[in-house]
Design a protein around this nucleic acid. Structure first.
Lengths: 141, 141
DNA sequence: CTTGAACCTCTACCTACTGTAGCTTGTAAG
DNA sequence: CTTACAAGCTACAGTAGGTAGAGGTTCAAG
């Protein structure tokens, strides 16, 4: 049986985060010692490792909840799992596209700035006047 | 003089967001009507447009605060502005790199899944076993 | 003068955690 | 067996950057 600290260390998680996952129902309530300290088994370790890995791949906690539910029903079609992963892929691709547009605009902005006082700063000028932008960077960050 | 709703509409901001910016000191407290409603002038419009544009380029509110301060001192060197914009560019590039690694891993994961039940799902298997990953996607999301 | 859209304040909520305060438990050394 | 102290406990507050709603007031058009 593992203490919360050991579990956290083994999965690269912070202790508070483990308790947080329990609080939001992502991890089951573990057994306790007589004194009230949490004690974990191997299934908890596996589950937490799964969660952390999925988080590293950018899945939201809600998506992870779905994946864990699916994982608990081995007989079901894996189409749902596929759907969730595809959705995640799409989200990642959207974010990449958007960030690439930002990169382009920032580079252009920086490339044009040659004067030396704020009064003539091209960067500030671009920020002041959206119309000076070439790329669309409309929604969200 | 503009009402908060008009100001919001002209800058593509929500009314609550305008009040939020005022609350955190990013926008100055505007004049009020006798009845207590906010009334804005052109300088507020410019300032808010600047903020929104910088937000669209991914600058944090703290960075924007710095940029606005610099913008208010036209005689200063624009090196500081450059530094902030460069930092932002670097952050964007880091995020792109990271997301590209995620995309690669997600694609690989999805490409390998051909079985049809959750029990054999390659996606879940990869999530269960970090060692099955090729790419490093260690820190943050 | 009436109506109702738009405004007001205040508070709570979102994601995914992280940090702190003040107290208790577990464990290893002496 | 006692003591020291790391690690655990709960509860609450805070982070970024807003968003949503309740419950009440004001403005402006007709």
């Amino acid at each position: 049986m593992l203490s919360i600290g050991t579990l956290a260390k083994r999965t690269g998680t912070k202790v508070q985060t483990v308790r947080y996952y329990e609080q939001i129902g992502l991890l089951p309530e573990p057994g306790r010692t007589e004194g009230g300290q949490r004690r974990y088994g191997d299934s908890d370790l596996d589950r937490l490792a799964f969660i952390r890995h999925a988080r590293q791949l950018g899945f939201t906690l809600d998506a992870i909840r779905e994946l864990l539910d699916l994982s608990d029903n081995p007989g079901r079609s894996c189409a749902d799992v596929d759907r969730i992963a595809h959705r995640q892929l799409k989200e990642v691709e959207v974010r990449i596209t958007r960030l690439e547009a930002l990169r382009k605009e920032l580079k252009r902005m920086l490339g044009e700035c040659s004067r030396d006082t704020v009064a003539d700063c091209r960067v500030l000028e671009v920020l002041r006047d959206h119309a000076a932008c070439l790329t669309d960077h409309g929604q969200g960050a």
